[in-house]
């Protein structure tokens, strides 16, 4: 499969469906990087494989998902406009115990506020959209409520992540609801990283390998957040960790672990 020989169509077909072992897949990726013939055949087979998906029964997207998506891109567009202004903001106050609660609530409210601002501007052009805007607001409130639910739930696991014995400066807090796979993470006083590096958050499940839970880079004052990364539902965690990885992230945590924290039983248990 390697060297000057071309890869068999069988192996390329399997690779197009990610049905090879990681070792075989890595060898094929290396070969594809240098062989235009195999690359062309692989693209053909990938196109064939894509067509398989076209044969599945078609379903309507769930109710409200269109609104949720459009809200998300609207908020993203608004944040993109807002971000240059944040560069000039004043010095951030030192992080205090429990200061994360108002911060997180403010973040949730900010999501709503940004979306409301967008809507205010659009009212002049969209008088006929009043009815849908009510539904829109309901979704946004639900989103904020979901964040607050994670923050206030008795069953949420609150974990304080600290640095190794020689330093207590960087800290992180993870709030995790295993049932819904919801995670909110906030870190402070992190060191800035070179451009080719990133921080990566890990959920360490009770059973199985660490699950990547998002890449992040701190801002100018060392603060960073990860809010609701895509995670599988129903995976109990025994710990959380943060590592430094190459910019594109890693499949497995790379030592040393910068921040780590084990879970404790949820209050009330």
């Amino acid at each position: 499969m390697t060297g000057n020989e071309h890869i068999s169509q069988e192996d390329l077909a399997l690779h197009a469906m990610q049905a090879l072992s990681e070792g075989d897949a890595a060898a094929i990726r290396a070969h594809l990087a240098t062989c235009a013939v195999c690359r062309a055949e692989f693209a053909e087979l990938s196109g064939d494989a894509a067509m398989v998906g076209l044969g599945v029964p078609q379903h309507q997207v769930p109710a409200g998902s269109r609104t949720r998506f459009l809200d998300r891109i609207a908020a993203d567009a608004a944040m993109a406009k807002e971000s240059p202004k944040r560069e000039t903001r004043g010095k951030v106050l030192p992080f205090q115990a429990n200061a994360w609660i108002p911060w997180a609530v403010a973040a949730a409210l900010a999501i709503v506020a940004v979306s409301l601002g967008i809507r205010l501007n659009s009212l002049h052009q969209e008088l006929t959209a009043a009815t849908s805007q009510v539904a829109h607001l309901t979704d946004e409130t639900a989103q904020a409520r979901q964040v607050l639910e994670v923050l206030t739930s008795h069953s949420a696991q609150h974990v304080l992540l600290t640095a190794d014995k020689t330093s207590v400066e960087p800290t992180g807090r993870a709030i995790y609801l295993a049932d819904s796979g919801s995670l909110i993470f906030q870190a402070n006083h992190l060191k800035l990283l070179a451009l080719d590096k990133t921080y990566e958050l890990w959920v360490i499940p009770v059973e199985g390998n660490p699950i990547p839970a998002g890449l992040f880079r701190p801002d100018a004052v060392g603060d960073a957040t990860v809010v609701m990364p895509p995670l599988p539902r129903g995976v109990p965690a025994k710990a959380f960790g943060v590592t430094v990885e190459k910019a594109e992230g890693s499949d497995t945590p790379t030592a040393p672990i910068i921040l780590a924290g084990a879970t404790a039983p949820a209050s009330g248990e």
Partner: peptide, 16 residues
């Protein structure tokens, strides 16, 4: 339960 195995940039396909 694995990390995304490819990035969008890696997905190339021929489709007519």
């Amino acid at each position: 339960r694995r990390k995304p195995t490819d990035s969008p940039d890696d997905v190339v396909l021929v489709s007519k």
